[in-house]
Design a protein around this nucleic acid. Sequence first.
DNA 1: ACCTTCTTGAGACGATTTATCAATTTCAAT
DNA 2: ATTGAAATTGATAAATCGTCTCAAGAAGGT
Lengths: 143, 143
Amino acid sequence: MAKSEKEMGMLRDHLAKHQLKLTRQRELILDAFLKQEHITAEEMYHQLAKKDPHLGLATIYRTLNLFCEAGLAQARHFGTQTQYDNISHKGHHDHLICTGCGKIVEFENCEIEKLQEEVATRNGFTITTHRLELYGLCSRCRH
Amino acid sequence: MAKSEKEMGMLRDHLAKHQLKLTRQRELILDAFLKQEHITAEEMYHQLAKKDPHLGLATIYRTLNLFCEAGLAQARHFGTQTQYDNISHKGHHDHLICTGCGKIVEFENCEIEKLQEEVATRNGFTITTHRLELYGLCSRCRH
DNA sequence: ACCTTCTTGAGACGATTTATCAATTTCAAT
DNA sequence: ATTGAAATTGATAAATCGTCTCAAGAAGGT
């Protein structure tokens, strides 16, 4: 917990600004959240079941949504679930996905990211995160 | 319906390849879909209620998913709902999404697409489609 | 027209997330 | 340290969204 001073500070700030309280559960969930790049409420529920078997799923949802409002997390809907991304992690990995065999290749491309920034700026946006997925056939599946 | 020959052709192709049938409902839904840039199943359900009050919501979901498989549409999860984007009528467009107010700005960027092709080629992939979403705050929500 | 197969519509169902509410905890003011 | 108003929690009910089920109907090849 010692190394997450910055994030804990952001949370405290947000709580103070909104007359909210710092609870044992919120500290526990923040602690676990900061160790992840992204996580679902359900995953966190299972992870924390060991440390606090009585921690409710609703509390986790409420807290992760609170983190979003405090600027620590960002919700992203993927498939049927909601992923909560840790904003302090910046390792963007995009994906090449083969629709034939399901193979996934991760890549990073600074030039693309730069162009994304340009598009965003041109439209008055400030990007916090992005998602890029390329679908196609890998060399083996192309026949 | 006369102006959507290309899309109707793509649908016929897909149906033929998979032993599926062309039904009145599928024609009706395609017709309505091609007039939109993106739409949810629920929105389409209400739109088509006038033309066919007995058209079921499940049929709309099934048909929009079929369009995705036929390469006419692309599903995108935003908020709690699924948006079905029309990718064959107006060309592919990517999205800038404000996480504050939900505003969506569509854009197209040839340079980004060219770089995507390069990444794909470098990895032996042939891209058939892609999805690019930039999440952030619009000028108004940034305060 | 026949016959097989696919599709539809209606509602049941499943998964995910939010709302409800009594009991508990926080925290600032005593 | 104690008090007490206000926020939070946990358990569960409820809402939301999308898929599944299945009997009845439609499509399309022969």
